[in-house]
Write a protein that binds this DNA or RNA. Structure first.
Lengths: 250, 250
DNA sequence: CGCGATTTGTGCGTGCGTTCACAAGCGCCT
DNA sequence: AGGCGCTTGTGAACGCACGCACAAATCGCG
């Protein structure tokens, strides 16, 4: 996934070219958004500075890990004091490329796509869904959240015109690969895929996949395992400090 | 052979309660659902057996990794031939605890929750949302996909009565922690959290988090990085055979 | 001005996950 | 029956990530 590659020379390089962090560990990158969210909350709560301990707790990680993560993007903390919240917010936003709101194209306005189109959480965190597409003529022309659904054949035009670099696929699995091909051909280099299938894209295009059923299946495994354990050790050998559940088993 | 946990001698090895795989690597567990999906597709396509190479391609992973993953659950392949698709499907389903359909409670029937309640992908992959809850009286009583939305104060009763072990939180972030507390108190031990916040739960309760904005922010980072790179190395050192993007750059 | 309390930044050991490479095993063909 | 090609299963090496523990640095106070 982290296979980077030049080429795909797209668009204007003028605006915000900086000597950024090409070697940030992927695990760190995945946690930065979490820190950013926690920091935003802290900033809203009026906090000026925050210690690594407090921020780590708010982000649900180990404090040493947090410090190491942040150290990768420079020294923005003060020993004995902590981190400047506003400064860190700005820095993380810069690293994540969130200094300007990014345009997102959403393909597939079915059940899930409809919800995503109306999801407020995107707008407040650096993204704006600027175009909706579908192949179903019954959905084309419909307006969702003030945005009209267009036929997917117009995707390339719109994507280029509105400088859209991120696409979201919320179609059935059978349609996902063709849609991905269209997205790639339209110059989109980042895809968030909600369809339960593997996408094949050329190098230089990043794909992240979110599969809701898989998440549940992983939980199911642990549930199954826990059930086996309680079945085996039914005597109640409380080997962990789980709080007793009240009002159950009656 | 993969000798797993010789102890835990629990009487009957016959039916379904077995000393399962308590030490399966977490990374492997996270991939098993992907293998299962690929295998299901292969089975539907009429394939009887499949090689690790083919299955790995269908699941989007390295074949060595796939073999090692599968080896953790026993020898279900035949050298020189491949894996028996049906057998492997059954085995993975067994390991993941998907031999019976699991009941899921969904809390928060807003924008996203509504979509999840109607998402067909759950039903076909081992889960059934059997109860919907919300705190908003305007939503309580509404019927979604043939299921009535109940007030969250009834969650504990319903969860116990219907033996629900998995809960999905699709509420705003501000409501997520109280909802999680309610779920835990109702005896639910697995939570899938769509709210952008960290949940605090007692030991023994598993939480998985899906944050849609974070996924986009991770993509944004790579997008930003790619943009910087193309800005720096604009000459286009095409060292890979990436398909040229047409009609971009205007 | 110096000292102690506090917190960052990081070197290092450890464990996990990934990948390579190959021996072992299986079926098929002659 | 025997050999050959193919595929699995796994030992071993490698790299990454995590967490501990501590030195370095800063602030506040007497």
């Amino acid at each position: 996934m982290s296979q980077l590659s030049p080429g795909t020379g797209s668009g204007s390089p003028g605006a915000s070219v900086g000597p950024d962090f090409p070697d940030l560990p992927e695990a760190t990158v995945a946690r930065l958004p979490e820190y950013l969210r926690a920091l935003s909350n802290l900033a809203e709560a009026g906090n000026d500075t925050v210690s690594s301990e407090a921020l780590a707790a708010a982000a649900g990680v180990n404090s040493a890990k947090l410090r190491k993560d942040l150290s990768h993007l420079g020294s923005y903390g003060t020993r004995g004091v902590g981190y400047d919240v506003a400064l860190l917010v700005g820095q993380i936003e810069h690293v994540l490329g969130l200094t300007h709101r990014r345009a997102v194209a959403l393909v597939g306005v079915g059940n899930l796509g409809h919800a995503l189109a109306g999801y407020a959480g995107f707008g407040s965190r650096g993204f704006r869904i600027t175009a909706l597409f579908d192949a179903d003529p019954r959905l084309v022309g419909k307006t969702i959240n003030g945005l009209m659904v267009r036929h997917i054949e117009h995707l390339a035009d719109v994507a280029v015109q509105e400088a859209i670099a991120i696409g979201v696929i919320a179609t059935p699995a059978s349609a996902a690969q063709p849609v991905a091909d269209v997205l790639v051909r339209a110059g989109i280099t980042s895809i968030l895929n909600f369809a339960p299938c593997v996408l094949s894209v050329p190098d230089g295009v990043d794909v992240r996949k979110v599969d809701l059923a898989i998440e549940l299946q992983i939980l199911s495994f642990h549930e199954h395992r826990k059930a086996s354990l309680t079945g085996v050790a039914l005597t109640g050998v409380a080997q962990n400090g789980v709080a007793p559940v009240e009002g159950v088993g009656g």
